[in-house]
Amino acid sequence: MVTRTNGPDPGPKASRPRDSRATAELLLTAATAEFAQYGLAGARIDRIAERAGANKRLLYVYFGDKDALFTAVLEHQVGRLAAETPLVDGDLVTYAGTRFDYLLAHPETARLAAWRRFEADHHTASEIEGYRAKVEAVATAQRAGRVNDSLPAVDLFAMVLRITESWLDAPPALLAVAGEQPRTQERLAEHRAALIEAVRRITAPGPRAAAG
């Protein structure tokens, strides 16, 4: 018979309990930075684990392979972007300013989108549904006479999207035209005002023909 003298049996694993949710969030944050910097092809699981300060085995446990992790990152980014840049009643002018502000504050979102376009046609079901809802909101506003209906809703929305990204995604040579510091607060404010005015002009409803 063995007499225990060191307290209760700690069980097969005496390590400190791990907060799995916090670990998964750390891995997701690290993966976001890695994919934004290197893209899907250039990202490395070892570096993601090192960024998160976690064992890379946990990455596979929580997310699966690298492609699945990239999808998880996109889902997270799309969810945050949708939550913080709502399109209310088809108001594309307010939406454009809000989206520009968000992309300026979260450059990793824009970089991830650029990598995705460059590497593969990689999109998620929630992203498709999010865009579908926004295009329908524009179409509803067009039918109500609040938004220019001379262009299809999907084309008008696509144009507004690109306008919100135009300065942030501009070629370096074009940025140089603006001077040595093309992204100062003053220059960004000037561009923001310009993009809002551009969206206002292309979305403003025109006079409707009188019923004959």
Rank of each mutant, 00 (worst) to 15 (best):
V154F: 03
E119Q: 13
Q142H: 08
F157W: 14
Q142I: 04
Q142Y: 07
T124Y: 11
G64L: 01
A144H: 08
Q142V: 05
F118L: 14
D149C: 14
H122T: 07
A96V: 14
L103C: 05
R117N: 01
A113G: 09
L151P: 04
H122D: 11
E127C: 11
L87H: 10
D67W: 02
A144F: 00
T109K: 04
D101F: 00
Q77F: 02
D149S: 15
A105Y: 07
R132Y: 06
A68L: 04
D65W: 00
V93D: 08
L151Q: 15
V73E: 05
G130V: 10
A153C: 11
R111T: 09
A96W: 10
L151C: 11
A96R: 07
E129W: 06
G145V: 08
N148M: 09
F157E: 13
V160A: 12
L87V: 11
L161H: 13
A68F: 00
G130H: 09
T109C: 11
A72R: 02
F100E: 14
Q142S: 09
A82R: 10
L74A: 09
T109Q: 09
A96F: 11
A141D: 12
L87G: 11
T109N: 08
A72S: 09
A158C: 05
E119R: 07
A158I: 03
L156A: 07
L104Q: 03
D89C: 01
R80V: 03
R116T: 15
T85D: 06
D89V: 00
L103S: 02
V73G: 06
D65S: 00
L69W: 02
V154I: 03
S150T: 15
E75Q: 07
H76V: 00
Q142G: 08
D67K: 00
R132N: 12
I128M: 12
A139E: 12
T85I: 01
T71Q: 04
L81N: 06
V135F: 11
D121Y: 07
L112Y: 08
V93I: 09
K134F: 07
F118T: 13
V73N: 04
Q77R: 05
A82L: 11
T94C: 03
K134Q: 15
Q142E: 11
L151A: 14
V73C: 05
V93M: 06
A105N: 08
E119I: 07
A114L: 10
R80F: 01
D149N: 15
D67F: 01
D65I: 00
V93P: 02
D155I: 08
L74Q: 13
K66V: 02
T85M: 02
L69I: 01
L87W: 08
T140S: 06
G97S: 04
E127I: 07
E75R: 07
V138Q: 11
T85A: 05
T98W: 00
T98I: 01
T109W: 12
A105Q: 12
F157M: 15
T71W: 01
L156W: 07
W115Y: 08
T71Y: 03
L104V: 00
D121E: 13
R111L: 14
M159A: 10
V78Q: 13
A125G: 14
V93C: 06
T109D: 13
I128H: 14
A72V: 00
T71G: 02
I128A: 15
L161N: 15
D67H: 01
W115G: 08
W115P: 05
A144E: 15
E129A: 15
